[in-house]
């Protein structure tokens, strides 16, 4: 279990309980269960307290938690017959983007998402979920295919942002993102997005310009990272707490602003403490959203999606 900075007191208590139990295992005469149970209870109370009212910055940390289920975990658990389709037919295959054909409850769909990786090797291979132009162009290709064959598209968003690299810029990062967003607005099939962790700026928009957008309870979606915002507006990257607050990047604020349609509840202590439950909850939400859109004509899906984005911004937050 990886603990976040704000979970340190919790780590201490849980650690102590674990230590006691380890001692008891080594020495059968010791009876620690009562003490350990008391610690467990204390830990439970603390966990509830910590997660009762997470600050925006803490939500960012939870959204980036390495033990959170990632794109691959959702695809493995919720989809069958997943058949990855690779490459942009121009330059390369971007491993930051997973995508292909799959079945969701037996229905054929196209699934696309950013995968961050879960250990050093896979993180490097996945480029920490930061796509290059090839990734967006692969997504465009897959969305075209979905459109041609009338398959709904499900996108799973989890990226710090598009990769800021030399080659990525040379091959037209901006254009690739713009075209991917444009493609999202052109396909005559249901398009559903779930922000499962970090929705990092343009890199997320390119996938999340959808008919229905859901966010996990502790995920975030923002125009810029709090650190980036702090270093520009506060001239001090350490002011990320203030920036996270000001940016209104939580699922709760985004729902109030009318940017997202639904919040998917996470288990107590965040998705990392209940991976299975989280994945199931996402599966349920996908099912509901697909149902809402099923039977709609292609032109209606396109028109509604466009109108949704044209209407955005008419709602502000209460003072």
């Amino acid at each position: 279990m990886n603990y976040l900075e704000f979970e340190k007191p919790l780590a201490e208590i849980e650690g102590k309980a674990e230590e006691l139990r380890a001692l008891a295992r080594a020495n059968s005469e010791m009876d620690v269960e009562k003490e350990a149970a008391a610690l467990d209870k204390k830990a439970d109370v603390l966990l509830k307290d910590l997660y009762k009212d997470l600050t925006p910055w803490r939500k960012c940390q939870v959204a980036r938690h390495p033990d959170r289920p990632h794109c691959k975990d959702y695809i493995d658990a919720l989809f069958t017959e997943y058949t990855p389709l690779a490459g942009d037919r121009n330059f390369a295959d971007d491993h930051a983007i997973m995508g292909g054909l799959a079945r969701f409850n037996d229905q054929a769909v196209v699934v696309i998402g950013q995968e961050k990786g879960n250990d050093t090797k896979s993180r490097i291979e996945r480029n920490f979920g930061m796509a290059r132009p090839e990734g967006y162009r692969k997504a465009i290709r897959l969305m075209d295919m979905a459109h041609r064959f009338g398959l709904p598209v499900v996108t799973l968003v989890d990226t710090p942002g598009a990769y800021p690299g030399k080659g990525a810029e040379e091959r037209g990062q901006a254009e690739a993102i713009a075209r991917s967003t444009e493609k999202c607005l052109q396909i005559g099939v249901p398009l559903i997005s779930v922000v499962i962790g970090e929705g990092g700026s343009g890199g997320a928009v390119a996938f999340a310009t959808a008919n229905r957008i859901a966010m996990l309870e502790h995920s975030v979606y923002s125009v810029i990272s709090p650190e980036g915002c702090a270093s520009i507006l506060w001239k001090d990257a350490e002011k990320m707490r203030e920036a996270a607050e000001a940016l209104r990047l939580t699922a709760q604020d985004l729902q109030k602003l009318g940017v997202i349609d639904r919040i998917i509840k996470e288990p107590l202590g965040g998705a990392q403490r209940g991976r299975k439950e989280t994945i199931e909850a996402v599966g349920k939400a996908l099912e509901t959203m697909l149902k809402e859109l099923s039977g709609k004509k292609p032109e209606v899906l396109i028109r509604d999606r466009r109108q949704k984005f044209l209407d955005m911004g008419s709602r502000g937050l209460a003072a």
Binding site: V223, I224, R248, G313
Partner: peptide, 22 residues
């Protein structure tokens, strides 16, 4: 780029302007 002071609503101008161009 996008106007940070309008947060997510500035980001949403990316798809919004794209609809207009379409």
């Amino acid at each position: 780029g996008a106007r940070m002071q309008e947060g997510i609503l500035s980001l949403m101008q990316m798809p919004r302007s794209t609809v207009a161009i379409q």
